[in-house]
């Protein structure tokens, strides 16, 4: 099983999109963990795991995602997931993974969320 990752940076929205292609299991988890750890060292407000092309995730893979979510949350940032395939969603559901994590089923939901967040931040800065 292999896992490729592609990073898309959106500086305007302070969003790092991590496209996951392949499967995230006990073999691919360490590599992904390293990639993710390096990618999130930059000060991204949100790191989005795009699972459109991810067709397998095991508990070893979720472990990496949990860890990253914890790190980001502790730093006041957030981890979100998008475009989960049904079998991925099932695993998330069984493990009741991070009920407070933002989940987007498509890009337009994500855009809406980001717009709302940006408006909120601007509103806060204005004060």
């Amino acid at each position: 099983m292999n896992l490729d990752t592609k990073l898309h940076e959106d500086r305007d929205k302070s969003l790092l999109r991590v496209c996951m292609i392949g499967g995230l299991n006990t073999d691919t988890a360490p590599g992904f963990e390293a990639t993710l750890a390096e990618a999130i060292t930059d000060d991204w407000q949100m790191v989005l795991l795009d699972m459109k092309s991810l067709d397998y995730v095991s508990s070893a893979g979720l472990r990496v995602i949990f860890k990253a979510a914890k790190q980001l949350k502790a730093a006041g940032r957030s981890l979100a997931v998008a475009n989960r395939q049904p079998q991925i969603e099932k695993v998330f559901e069984i493990l009741q993974a991070l009920p407070d994590m933002a989940v987007f089923s498509n890009d337009s939901e994500l855009d809406e969320y980001l717009d709302a967040m940006q408006a909120k931040v601007k509103g806060r800065d204005a004060h």
């Binding site: 070893a60 979720l62 949990f66 860890k67 914890k70 949350k73 493990l95 991070l98």
Partner: peptide, 12 residues
């Protein structure tokens, strides 16, 4: 559990 509370392992 929430992100802060969740344990990283023990899911299998």
């Amino acid at each position: 559990e929430s992100t802060e509370e969740a344990s990283i392992g023990g899911l299998g």
